[in-house]
Amino acid sequence: MNYKGILIILLLLLIFSFSVSAQYLEVALVSDIGGFGDNSYNEQLRESLIKAKQDFNLRLEFRESELMTDYQANINYFAENKFDLIWGTGFTMEQAVKEAAQMYPEINFVIFDGIVKEENVMSLTFREEEAAFLAGVIAALKTKSSTVAFIGGRETEIIKGYQRGFKTGVEAVNSEVEVINRYLGSFNDFSTAKRISEKLVSQNVDLIFYAAGPASKGIIDTALETDINLISLDAGDINLAPNNILTVIQKNTDYIVEQIIGSYYNDNYVNEIKEYGLVDNAFILAKNQTEDMLNQEILNKVEEYKQQFIAGEIEIRSSN
């Protein structure tokens, strides 16, 4: 082969390699009505996608929903513009994602913390009881009165899962610690949350783990007034009671986003209902707050019990 032929081949290889490297994945995220300043999963997912740009060639766009009626238009906007992967946040977006998936069958959608049974949707779900297990371990290690409590909003299957996981975690550490369970009957009843949490404090409870939605503000007010400890599921609560929230059990969005974007790049992406738990590194403790409120000895113990759970040495019973 002459010099000119070699030069042409090298030039073609250079052009090909440039075109491959220039390819990018178009990813969009639509918030629910909490918006991107919610200190919760809208914001977490946005930050995790931005971090993923360090490892992947992404074009990112975000749309914030002020009303639930915005969901469909925001999702459809990205579908009409042929984005590769469109994310929605939370179960309140299930119907909007379902309708968009039916209207745009060639587009892939991801719903975080929700289920949509369409062939072009990946549904990300979580074994919430395993997050609560970590809360129970921490509660048993931190209580001084040996009496702790769980407060749920409504008595749904998911919230009862939190109750079971919490009790399992407490009992794994110390079966003599009493666990009191209470339900508000609503996720919006601030006054009932305040009254029930005050009653629990009078019963010697010095730590409350809660899954009570907006009504949690009543529990937080009680903690501020009585100086008891709390374990939350919402990072936004830290700003309300920084000296009372021991930690927040969060979904590990950095890890999950990295896994899903990576699978898309590596051509092993599959639209399915995926369930994440402790074995998948799906739950983490809010870093800064945890480091401020829990010492390394306790954190080491939490990791020990987590590994025992992953190894199958501890199980969450359905009757807890």
Rank of each mutant, 00 (worst) to 15 (best):
A140C: 11
E99A: 06
E130M: 03
G90F: 04
M68G: 06
A79R: 03
F91T: 09
G114I: 07
E171C: 08
F166I: 09
T69C: 04
A79L: 01
A101D: 01
F133H: 09
R164E: 02
G152S: 05
Y77V: 04
V137Y: 13
T89P: 02
I159R: 08
A140G: 14
V97E: 07
D70C: 05
Y77E: 09
R127Y: 12
A100G: 08
K167T: 14
D70M: 03
A135W: 13
W87K: 01
P105N: 02
N120A: 11
R164W: 04
F91C: 00
Q102I: 09
V110C: 09
K82W: 09
Q95V: 07
V97H: 05
E130W: 06
E94R: 00
F109Y: 15
Y71G: 05
F112S: 14
M103K: 15
K144E: 08
T147I: 07
I159S: 03
L85S: 07
Q102M: 10
A131W: 01
V110L: 10
A149D: 04
N74E: 06
E106H: 14
F166A: 10
E155S: 08
F78Y: 06
L85E: 12
E94L: 01
L124S: 00
E80K: 05
E157I: 06
I158K: 05
L141S: 13
I107C: 04
Y77A: 04
Y162M: 10
S65R: 09
T168D: 07
Q163P: 04
M68F: 05
T147M: 02
A101M: 01
P105C: 06
I138N: 11
G88K: 11
I115R: 13
E64K: 09
D70T: 01
F150P: 09
E171Y: 14
F78H: 03
G165H: 00
K82F: 14
R127H: 12
R63E: 14
A100P: 10
Y104Q: 04
V116W: 13
E94V: 01
M122E: 07
